[in-house]
C-alpha cells in the first residue's frame, strides 16, 4: 500500500491559502543537544548544524527545528526518512539518544497569503506580531484545542505541523478561521 497524507491533497482558499504539504519526512531526535557527537550526527544528516533555541534552519531539502531542550525535528524528503533515521541511530549508537521516523504521525500544512497572522491569532494565545514572532522561529502552542508547531518562512508563507489524528479537524478549523467573510485585517 502506498503512503498518503491524512489530508490527501485537501485544501482551502479563503483569507489565506491552505494546502496539504504532501508527504514529508519527519524524524524526531531526542538526546543531549549539547553533545558534540549528536551535533555532528545532525550535521551529517541535514548538512547544517542544529538550530539555536526556538529556531528552524534550512539546508537544501532538509530542515532542522528546535522543539524542546532535548528534542530536534529533522525534515527531509519522505523517501529518505528511514535511511536518515538509521544513519543517525548508527552515529549515536553509544549515546543516550533516540531517533524515530514520525513522518506518518504528523499532518503538515502550507499556508500562504497576507492574513496568516490574523487567521492563526483566532485560535492561539501567541503574540503573532512580526516583531514578536519573526521568520523561522518555531512556535509550539495550541491552535483551537490541539497542539501545533508553526513557523513563518516568509512574511506571506508559513508551515504548520500537528498530529495526524487531528489533521482533518485542523483543516476544518483553519478553513473556518480563514473564511473570506470573517477577515480581521489586524496584522
Amino acid at each position: 500500500m502506498s503512503s498518503v497524507t491524512v489530508l490527501q491533497g485537501a485544501g482551502f482558499d479563503g483569507a489565506i491559502e491552505i494546502r496539504d504539504a504532501g508527504l514529508l519526512g519527519m524524524i524526531t531526535l531526542r538526546g543531549d543537544l549539547a553533545s558534540p557527537t549528536l551535533n555532528a550526527a545532525v550535521k551529517t544528516a541535514t548538512g547544517t548544524a542544529p538550530p539555536e533555541m526556538g529556531q528552524i534552519v534550512h539546508a537544501d531539502a532538509q530542515s532542522c527545528a528546535w522543539m524542546s531542550p532535548d528534542e530536534l525535528m529533522i525534515f527531509a524528503p519522505y523517501a529518505q526518512a528511514d535511511e536518515i533515521t538509521a544513519q543517525i541511530t548508527g552515529d549515536l549508537a553509544d549515546h543516550h539518544a533516540l531517533a524515530v521516523n514520525v513522518s506518518d504521525a504528523r499532518a503538515v500544512f502550507d499556508l500562504s497569503g497576507n492574513a496568516i497572522r490574523d487567521v492563526l491569532s483566532k485560535g492561539t494565545p501567541v503574540d503573532l506580531s512580526p516583531d514578536a514572532l519573526g521568520l523561522n522561529v518555531v512556535r509550539r502552542t495550541r491552535l483551537g484545542q490541539v497542539a501545533v508547531a508553526f513557523w513563518f518562512t516568509s512574511e506571506t508563507t508559513a508551515r504548520l505541523v500537528c498530529f495526524r489524528s487531528v489533521g482533518a479537524y485542523m483543516l476544518t478549523w483553519l478553513s473556518t478561521a480563514a473564511d473570506p467573510a470573517a477577515q480581521v485585517d489586524y496584522h
Binding site: M53, G54, S68, P69, P125, V126, D127, R139, R140, T141, R142
Partner: peptide, 10 residues
C-alpha cells in the same frame, strides 16, 4: 526551558 512568554492556556 524554551524562553517563550506563554499564556496560561498553554
Amino acid at each position: 526551558n524554551c524562553g517563550q512568554m506563554v499564556d496560561e492556556t498553554d
